[in-house]
Amino acid sequence: MSELVSAGPPLIEIQGVSKRFVKRLDIAGKIARRLGAGLEEETVHAVDGVDLSIDEGDVVGLVGESGCGKSTLGRMVAGIMPPSDGAVLYKGRDIASLSGDDKLEATFAVQMIFQDPFSSLNPRMRVEDIVGEAPVVHGLVPRKGMSDYVDEILTKVGLDPALKRRYPHQFSGGQRQRIGIARALAVKPKFLVCDEAIAALDVSIQAQIINLFMDLREEFDLTYLFISHDLSVVEHISERVVIMYLGRVVETAQAEALFAAPNHPYAQALLSEVPRLDQRKRDFQPIKGEIPSPLDPPPGCHFHPRCPQSFGPCSSARPVLKSIGPDRISACHLND
């Protein structure tokens, strides 16, 4: 759906967002440091200066391996975690600066669907309360109307409303994920951040949930940030794809262009190494090495120790994201 660029600001804009986690020294560590031990507080740059703007109606796929910061970025977009640097803008206004009704509007507008269908539902609450609590507390529906409202939402996500008096443990993984989606929909969001939302589900159930996401998008004009390690899913539903490696964006492109010809060597590796049904008995040499620890990322381009094409500047200078085509950016020295 290539809508024309709308006049207003994008629905969500991320500006130079970083997230650092600092592991502080405990008392013993502090004393040891006073005594001259070379102990330092450890800092993880989970997300390192990411810019991204998402227009209304967009479906953006965010891909990367563990430690790349995709989940952290998703949580900052969803307002669950404040960024260490930079700002997350909702309709052009910094979420951190909002207050009162504006803040509540922005909070409702962005909801998150979690990976784990078990820990993401409160085991002590009935489905009815899980879905209906927030709308009632915030006065979106009167308490008396909660039951009907919950019925309506449950029907939308394909669950039988007759089951709403039950507890989460009485449902299967796929049904639980539907409950999580219903909980998010209940506050009438505009934007869903789906963090590995199908990764924990059975294969035959994954397709059902992906279809549900696509149906809901049509019905409620939703915008998605679809975080996944599974490229085939991202390829299927995304219009634009962002690839991250160790906290930084390495390539952003329209899905079709990216999957046809990835530019960044990491993107190329990722695309060729995902197991696919149509690739049998491959005899290829996968890229070498481990994903470095985000505690101590390599200097220059984070990918250079594993990159088959690395050369001079890769180990010293951080490559910048450069436009390499229409709506396409990549951070690689090979493009210089």
């Binding site: 035959s204 059902q208 390829e235």
Partner: peptide
């Protein structure tokens, strides 16, 4: 039901039920 077996952007063929 695997995405790569379906046309991009279309609904996936799904197995109903659980």
């Amino acid at each position: 039901s695997v995405p790569s077996a379906n046309k991009r952007g279309d609904r996936l063929n799904q197995i109903p039920g659980m």
